[in-house]
Design a protein around this nucleic acid. Structure first.
Lengths: 333, 333
DNA sequence: TTGAAAGCGCTAACAT
DNA sequence: ATGTTAGCGCTTTCAA
């Protein structure tokens, strides 16, 4: 019936020592005579005693658990990020409490609160559009927080790990402009800081450098789905664009496949570049050229940064920018 | 400095009631006079009090947390399953503690133990090849466990949610045998129960029904990667096979793309059927015909089943089989 | 309807 | 090197 019946008292009694000694043995405290240690260890083995992490958490105010806020697991970009987080967390013996924000207003805040209630030692927020309320909450939170793959406009006081989206977009668009002046930008909601500011900015700078006139008709906002790509393909062609930088891989594949179905040749008639270099870009034909995010690393570095914050280590730089690169494959000239 | 300074005592004092009353209000106990309730609620609001879930867990022996053991997040099949688990968990207000088994012998057991130490109320194990030791542990575990997408040979005492792999394989192979007798089976490790028994069995039965002689040369074991598909493509052709049922989507896409590169026509020269109908099968060209697992549902149903077990509800059937179907797309005739 | 008090299983001073 | 003791913040009888 009971999950766990064996407590530290049982071990202490059986081993003929005090519970404090058992606690010391369990926690690797050196102030225990080897003989005593052995005796305790034997009893632990014999009784199959396992420390209760909840009780430990209450007493020590540390849960060795970190909360991870993730928009959706089935997005490979986020999933890969989570992998990076998980591996480093395991390395430092932290467990991961996973939450996705519920739908609706301020779902992210209540997800955050639920993590806080469970007394997590730290929190990683994965690439997400944060609500106003959330931003406010994060201002005066006591628990260490790292943003992985997002930034909050002008909130450099909150730790973050990212790539330089403006620069990446600029590089990608520049490559496309080598063969045409008509380069479209296909992004998610422009109200999102990264899209509406960093990426759009990078796009404009690339054009500027090439002395190409900015044309709002070449900017497309779209949901990140395969289906959305179907509809977009034709609109892209109609717009006169001869190339496009697409900020989501799945969306890019949708566009790619539809273009081909419609009889367009990629990259000859139309060049495509996507943004995340997930396995999607390897599966389609032709393979999609893409910005290469160090996605796994963003997760790993975020977690490492968080461990430092949790243990109070000195942090050199709270806002880390990781290097990106451009993988030219078969969808660009 | 402190994560949380406001305790139930602070609220009690400020509201001029006992902590027991505050506890009742927080937990929705009806035995509180409305006026008292309102007063307490006001103070809670004013002090921004949030119950400490760890303390609550220790006192009540319930953590409202379920552990999920998942092999890898970046596999879309598992990720989708996790989505199903997550959504239902959220619905019942459970949080999810996520763990992947570490590499090496009995990594799954230590992952399990770490979940148990954290006093999770229940555990879901996602499609995994379980070690001997793990199987043993699961025999006499006190915490409710549900296997999602796996079965343990002859261990129907452990709850599970699955599809009928034998039947699914049989149906898939039967479709392929309509146009050729040379149907290959490409699977993961045959030592794995589902592959080596259920799927192989289904394959054999399909052949038997069609009076086709079983040929061991048409059985291929392979890792589930895109690269593995490259090498396999040629071997498949050399084996004389004219069709293949492949139990992993990514692997199937690898084979598909390589076949096409080598100048073979799919499905005219070679038919391909895969097993999980993930988004991968929609991205490639031609689109892959596939067995349609209700993956999300397996996750959702597993979690629902677990909630019942955790609350001690009556369970009709601990071993649930969900229906599958076959999606014929463009890689079969 | 409310309060008092005894734990839950452990950590962490403080003693010895 | 080891033991004693006071919490950690909450739930939950048991009384009132």
């Amino acid at each position: 019936m009971d999950k766990q019946t064996v407590t530290i008292y049982d071990v202490a009694e059986r081993a003929g020592v005090s519970m404090a000694t058992v606690s010391r043995v369990v926690n690797g405290n050196q102030n225990v005579k080897p003989a005593t240690r052995k005796k305790v260890l034997d009893v632990i083995e014999e009784l199959d005693y396992r420390p209760n992490a909840v009780a430990r958490g209450l007493a020590s105010k540390k849960t060795t658990t970190v909360g991870v806020l993730i928009p959706e697991l089935s997005n490979p970009f986020f999933a890969r990020l989570a992998d990076g987080i998980h591996d480093i967390a395991a390395m430092y013996h932290y467990d991961i409490l996973l939450t996705s924000p519920e739908e609706g207003k301020n779902g992210d805040v209540s997800a955050l609160n639920s993590l806080l209630a469970k007394q997590v030692d730290g929190i990683i927020i994965i690439g997400y559009r944060l609500s106003e309320a959330m931003t406010k909450e994060l201002q005066n939170i006591r628990t260490p927080v790292v943003l992985a793959g997002t930034t909050l406009e002008g909130m450099s006081n909150i730790a973050s790990v990212n790539i330089n989206h403006e620069q990446a977009t600029k590089e990608a668009v520049t490559i496309l402009t080598e063969f045409t002046d008509q380069v479209a930008l296909v992004v998610g909601p422009l109200t999102d800081y990264i899209n509406g500011h960093r990426r759009l900015e990078g796009y404009k700078k690339a054009l500027e450098d090439q002395k190409i006139k900015y044309n709002e008709g070449l900017i497309f906002e779209s949901p990140y789905t395969l289906e959305a790509g179907r509809n977009l393909a034709e609109r892209l062609i109609d717009s006169g664009a001869k190339a496009a930088f697409v900020t989501d891989d799945l969306l890019a594949v949708g566009i790619l496949n539809t273009l081909i179905e419609l009889g367009h040749r990629v990259p000859d008639d139309f060049q495509l570049m996507s943004a995340n270099n997930t396995v999607y870009t390897e599966i389609c034909r032709p393979k999609l050229s893409s910005v290469q995010h160090p996605v796994y690393d963003i997760g790993a570095v975020s977690m490492r940064l968080l461990t430092k914050m949790m243990t109070g280590e000195e942090i050199e730089d709270k806002n880390i920018i990781l290097l990106h690169s451009i993988k030219q494959k078969d969808s660009t000239k």
